[in-house]
Design a protein around this nucleic acid. Structure first.
Lengths: 362, 362
DNA sequence: CATTTTTGCACAATCGATGGTGCAATAACC
DNA sequence: GGTTATTGCACCATCGATTGTGCAAAAATG
């Protein structure tokens, strides 16, 4: 039954109610009161008053005054795949652990949109930005640099800012070896049976292609070629690439390296248009992890980037603020087929019902 | 080669540079200048100056003054499944269309965390909140109500605030009919072959259970019972429910209704521990859509909530601000097995490479 | 030409918090 | 008991925008 009239309480309200000045109230509420030699009595009085009045700090006002905001941004291309949504989830948890408020936005792989989006974040005075999966890292970097905004690249190489990236080269090599070994059990392979789909002219793709070739060349003992179908990060283009291949060869390659889960969705579309028999004998490797993909009707190996380690390292880099850009490489994890890993979902505590519940009386 | 010293330009800087007063500059920059009878000349002069100086509005200052922020929140339980991540993606697009900045946060199905998270959003003076998939809608509602924050429930029923929900009842009925029909092709079914896994004591689950029973009862002509395995929204609990069932019956039910993709992940974990033969003869229905799930080794029917329509309606409700809470019901879509729908990913314009690219010279 | 109207803008208060500075009252000290 | 230190807090400028109000100068009107 505390006093509760519609509007939100401010430090001035508490100031009047407590008889203390606004600056005293402010100091008490933001924790700087010891430094300001406010007596414990006064502090406690104000704190209990604040609780009674349900005071909460107006973060826009604080942010304006201190030219900070407590916001950290994460820029991703899109949310709706397991890699980036899982990154968003982990990012949120890690940001909150550090007392920051996460703000996740997508740039949709459009350089203009990426820049505009970041500019909006800057207009809200965000304190730092994590940049993941953008088309134009340097453009974004410039926007950040102009605003003096600390930022790190995640899973992107950066000459201009520090970066944390997956070991695409080695991860792809390990992944390729795994699918080659698996496929070889089904009969002798030839180089033409092993094809990479997806990717782009970006650092990650180039590294993955290099790893793919390294493993393949080692396996066959020759230098392979004409085995890369570039599609960009587009399900549609990937689907078309599969259709082209299929029209040309009358079958899929026995051994598929798929550059990312987004490209994998292109394969799904292809699957939707073709008989299951087409996929009876293939083995796939995908650089990304999706639990449902792991249980498809053919063996799917995946390389799961260590998102949590990448973000953790990203926060460290922001705190350390090295003078020169630093690149940190983090190993992805090879996930064998039919594996459902635990994830952020498992941390949530969902009440476990004691018993079955009846259906409603319709 | 415009003047560009490190710090950000403010209206005062532009005021000095332009010879106009700060209020004039402000009016020009926020578009209210016609109303304030600023001459077009002056406006243009200031606008070009602003461009040259790369002026951007400090949104914290604006927000403080106008006690708005341009932020809209979306509260989800978790991001990392296709339903909520797709919702986040759609939400972001729709918010931006309306000139708002989306802020997506997760409450992790913890009533306390939900409230705290919303309080943080309120502290940033968000303008409106979309509430999706929370455990304690009424608790969140109270927090919003106290702050005078407009809000709508998405896919949640609400007596206290307006809601947009999927037609869980009918969607489940249609979904159940579909899997029954499919499974019946594999031989005569008995009621015990048809079981629902997942869910909770919440509105959506109750409705889905009702729809499930309606379809099942109509199919068999009797009232069925003992066919619901409640697990909460937890992969772990769902896995255990499958293990229990399997230990008891020595097989899975031929016809599975899975309450959500989160519960489906529980089935995946079960799958990881059992031979493929266990799944040879089953048909699944899942209330949620995930493209990868659609291509599992057994037929999977899905009911895809119409996220975009729900959010659209949510924005309408916020604008209309009806005096009494309104509930809008939106039909989900039945998705047959082996279907890879297009999604937000397809809107992004990813440059299509002209040709194959070479691997890097390692 | 005198008066009213309109145009074009400047002034100043304000949003809610922060933090440097100053100043009484009390305590400590010789 | 007089002087210096310390304690405890209030005052006030400030962050960058918004907006109600006021007032000259120019234009319109009779």
């Amino acid at each position: 039954m505390t006093v509760q009239n519609s509007k939100k309480a401010t430090i001035y309200d508490l100031s009047v109610l407590s008889g203390a000045s606004a600056s005293t109230v402010s100091a008490v509420l933001n924790g700087s009161w010891r430094k300001r030699r406010i007596s414990t009595e006064t502090a406690e009085r104000i704190l209990s008053l604040a609780k009674a009045q349900r005071y909460t700090t107006n973060l826009q006002a604080r942010g304006l005054r201190s030219s900070k905001s407590g916001l950290v941004g994460l820029l991703v291309p899109v949310y709706d795949n397991r890699f980036f949504s899982s990154m968003a989830q982990t990012f949120e948890a890690q940001a909150r652990l550090r007392g920051l408020s996460p703000m996740v936005v997508s740039g949709r792989r459009d350089p203009d949109e990426e820049r505009r989006t970041v500019e909006t974040l800057i207009a809200y005075s965000i304190d730092a930005l994590f940049i993941a999966g953008v088309t134009d890292p340097d453009g974004v970097h410039q926007v950040c640099a102009r605003a003096g905004l600390p930022h790190v690249n995640i899973d992107l190489p950066g000459k201009l800012a520090s970066s944390v990236i997956s070991d695409n080269r080695n991860g792809a090599e390990v992944l390729t070896s795994a699918i080659l070994r698996h496929a070889a059990q089904g009969g002798a392979l030839v180089p033409d049976d092993v094809v990479l789909f997806g990717g782009h002219d970006d650092h990650a793709s180039r590294e993955r292609i290099a790893g793919f070739h390294a493993a393949k060349d080692a396996f066959f003992g020759i230098e392979s070629q004409n085995d890369i179908e570039i599609t960009g990060y587009s399900p549609r283009m990937t689907e078309l690439a599969f259709e082209r291949f299929f029209a040309r060869e009358g079958r899929l390659p026995r051994c598929l390296f798929i550059n990312s889960s987004i490209n994998f969705e292109g394969l799904l579309r292809f699957m939707g248009r073709h008989d299951e028999a087409v996929f009876a004998n293939i083995v796939a490797g995908c650089f990304d992890y999706d639990p449902f993909a792991s249980f498809l009707p053919f063996p799917v190996y995946m390389a799961k980037p260590n998102i949590s380690a990448m973000l953790e390292k990203g926060f460290e880099l922001l705190e350390a603020a090295p003078v020169h850009p630093v690149v940190t490489i983090i190993e992805p994890q090879l996930i064998p087929p039919r594996t459902a890993l635990e994830g952020p979902l498992d941390d949530i505590r969902d009440p476990v019902p004691a018993s079955r519940i009846p259906a409603p009386t319709s």
